[in-house]
Write a protein that binds this DNA or RNA. Structure first.
Lengths: 194, 194
DNA sequence: AGTACTAGCGACATTAATGTTGCAAGTGTC
DNA sequence: GACACTTGCAACATTAATGTCGCTAGTACT
């Protein structure tokens, strides 16, 4: 009764890669709403045996590290795709936001882990952070952000808004609408114009 | 060499209560930067033996529940003290924010736990939520919040900003300045005025 | 002084997760 | 059809945290 990916089956390289993917995605889904979830639960969600996970990842930590790295790469790509260094600041801000929301909706757990052991992950996050700061600087120079605003605080608020927005994506899923909501809130707040 | 609270010592009721307090506060401190920290570490941080914690709280879960309840009560008190139903909306918003920041800086872990098992905690959080919504409604009626803003989103942004602001309190500790920064950002955003 | 109460300490039982290994089985490629 | 490859399954060993007990000891209230 074996199915592809079931017991046996010559695991082609592409098959194996697909299994790894399935494990990573299942881990994300499971750990998102219970960070202490067991390997057993992850395996169950991935539709594989627990031992299969251990064959692919030497330890639980290694699994999470792999997720973190993968998510960081996606994150990086999403930001770059928004052309934060070349497009007009506000346009880039919108594009970057929409892209990041898309990625983060699927990899929220892996992206929200502070301080990874893998230096590569650290490097990526630092680079993204720098890109974000440059974008904000350009936005301020263009007069889109008030000159008296602390840019570090601004970035933290931006990250926080994205994080908050991500929590409602499973519901409606319209990342574009969410992106404009985030950008609008970031720039104008919720108060009446002076 | 026994000290008050050391080995032995007739634990007066006030002594026992003080010990419980110490445990709760240590647990908050330890769990804040490692939610999976062991009971051993918590005991160590509290300066008591691990068994002492188990005498006071039947299980790890019970300890966390107690923290959660305590924090929720503090939270509730902080919000009420801001007179969100009677003061002018913007004044109340500032007061509530400052009070909540003060509490949350000390009980960030216990307050950030979603869905407690204790129904009392749920009730308190629901009540605070309702108070917040009423305040925002009053603010909108007073013209302080734009009429086209989704108040549910507004509340989520408010919570997110408070959460973010809390993360820098250990550094400078000036909750009043932080509160005005939060309220300002919430109302005006970071963009240039139209 | 006597008593009541509680904390520390050490030892133990229990449970649960993690990680490892050997074997059978199945599928695609050659 | 033989081979290569990987998975599922079951049965381990290991480790670590949790929770329990009995004992000792010290302090404060009476």
């Amino acid at each position: 009764m074996a199915v592809p990916g079931g017991p046996g089956g010559r695991a082609l390289r592409s098959d194996a890669e697909r299994t790894v993917r399935r494990i990573l995605e299942a881990a994300e889904r499971v750990l998102r709403d219970d960070p202490t979830a067991t390997m057993e639960r992850i395996a169950e969600a991935a539709g594989v045996a627990r031992t299969t996970i251990h064959r692919r990842f030497t330890s639980r930590e290694a699994l999470i590290d792999a997720m973190t790295l993968w998510a960081a790469q996606q994150f990086d790509a999403a930001v770059r795709a928004g052309r934060p260094d070349t497009l007009p600041p506000l346009v880039a801000l919108y594009q970057v936001t929409a892209n990041v929301l898309r990625v983060k909706s699927g990899w929220g757990f892996a992206m929200s882990r502070p301080g990874s052991a893998d230096p590569e992950v650290e490097r990526i996050h630092a680079r993204v952070l720098a890109e974000c700061d440059r974008l904000f600087l350009r936005a301020r120079d263009a007069g889109d952000i008030r000159a008296d605003v602390d840019l570090v605080w601004a970035r933290r608020v931006y990250y926080a808004l994205i994080h908050e927005a991500t929590r409602s994506i499973p519901a409606d899923g319209d990342t574009d609408a969410l992106a404009s909501r985030v950008v609008d809130t970031l720039l104008r707040g919720i108060g009446s114009a002076t």
